[in-house]
């Protein structure tokens, strides 16, 4: 039990740092609110270990803390709904055969972006949907990259953790 708390703590802290590094450069020229989502890599690793509950916990904590620390609480609502949905999507997709973390990353990123767009539509109205095509394409790219990174990390620590 204590081991798990330590592990989750380390993952959450690392995810926070990743989020901070990300916030230093901005990809907003592609579409507003577009992120690399690097912090999701930790959650993907946890799902890779089969620990879905842990992934949810780490991601929720990470989103809560990072939006309070690095951006306004206003973005909390956006990020939290999108984050929970995308973690669920990653977990769901991981059950399928032949899916590695790259695939989970893409699926998670796609779901995250779409859910964020839905929340944005509630606030800004119908016109936000014009961003959907470019958001989905960037989800493939960013989600793939994040999945690739988490795959690398996963392979290295697989033997050492469980």
């Amino acid at each position: 039990m204590a081991r798990k708390i330590t592990l989750y703590g380390i993952f959450a802290a690392t995810a926070l740092i990743f989020g901070y590094i990300e916030s230093l450069f901005s990809l907003s020229f592609i579409a507003p609110g577009i992120k690399l989502g690097l912090a999701n890599s930790l959650c993907l690793i946890l799902i890779g270990f089969g620990d879905t509950k842990g992934a949810f916990c780490v991601n929720t904590v990470r989103i809560l803390l990072s939006s309070l620390l690095f951006s306004s609480p206003f973005t909390l609502f956006f990020s939290l709904t999108a984050g929970i949905a995308s973690t669920a999507a990653c977990a769901g997709v991981s059950r399928l055969k032949g899916v590695s973390q790259v695939g989970m990353g893409v699926a998670g990123a796609a779901v995250h972006n779409t859910v964020q767009l839905c929340v944005a539509a509630l606030i800004f109205g119908r016109s936000v949907w014009y961003y959907l095509p470019i958001l989905l394409v960037s989800a493939v790219i960013t989600g793939g990259a994040v999945g690739e990174i988490s795959e690398c990390i996963f392979k290295k620590i697989k033997t050492k953790v469980k």
Binding site: V93, G98, V99, V102, V137, G144
Partner: peptide, 20 residues
């Protein structure tokens, strides 16, 4: 990207198709 697994490819194509 190393698309080493088939499932990954399916997800990738699905999302791209949704984009189109």
């Amino acid at each position: 990207l190393k698309l080493s697994k088939k499932g990954d490819l399916i997800i990738l194509i699905t999302v791209l198709a949704a984009a189109v």
